[in-house]
């Protein structure tokens, strides 16, 4: 029985979500798919569909309106998965830190595996970060990874895990606390 795990890093399919960035990093992600940098060399496909993705590229500090979507998309990705925070503002909030409508970085909501700093991130850095993410991907297990906030424990009936309602709406968590 050969090891299936080693194929994970040969076929990373990415999902990209803009959680409030200035477009700079998003454009660079697009540019890194283009001929000069050609991410597809590594087998990268931009699927745009969380259910078929392995790597979650998040750009931007998380604005208040994008948090639910971020968590929802994260929960819809099958394990093993890797989250890459692209750009300074998704790492720490960057220049937007402490503005009234931002949450200072992706890692307040979901566990981040690779941080790529830079404003804006250059395609070389994105490629480097992705490749490092692949190393992490290989080590991961298929345990369910949970968001840090806006999360309700998923129910389990007859051994079947139900993930339908795991990502909460913002209002609900306020009621709970």
């Amino acid at each position: 029985m050969f090891n299936l795990k080693k194929y994970r890093k040969k076929s990373p399919w990415i999902l990209h979500y803009n959680a409030g960035s200035c477009n700079g990093c998003d454009i660079e992600i697009l540019a890194s798919l283009a001929p000069k940098y050609d991410l597809e060399r590594f087998g990268v496909v931009n699927t745009g569909n969380p259910k078929q993705s392995d790597i979650f590229l998040v750009t931007g500090p998380v604005t208040l309106r994008s948090r639910e979507r971020l968590v929802e998309l994260y929960m819809q990705m099958p394990e093993p998965k890797v989250v890459v925070a692209v750009g300074s503002c998704s790492c720490t909030g960057g220049v937007f830190r402490d503005m009234y409508n931002v949450e200072d970085g992706v890692d307040r909501y979901i566990p981040v595996d690779v941080y790529i700093p830079g404003c804006a991130v250059s395609p070389e850095l994105i490629i480097d970060g992705l490749v490092q993410g692949l190393e992490i991907l290989e080590q991961k297990t298929k345990e369910m990874e949970k968001p840090l906030k806006l999360f309700k424990e998923s129910t389990c009936e007859e051994g079947i895990v139900n993930r339908r309602d795991t990502a909460l709406k913002v209002g609900k968590i306020d009621e709970k606390n």
Binding site: P50, R69, E72, I160, V161, N162
Partner: peptide, 16 residues
């Protein structure tokens, strides 16, 4: 396989 599979929601552009 069905026992091991998780039940999830349909994709709706990240909206609820």
């Amino acid at each position: 396989l069905f026992k091991k599979a998780h039940r999830v929601k349909e994709y709706n552009c990240g909206e609820k």
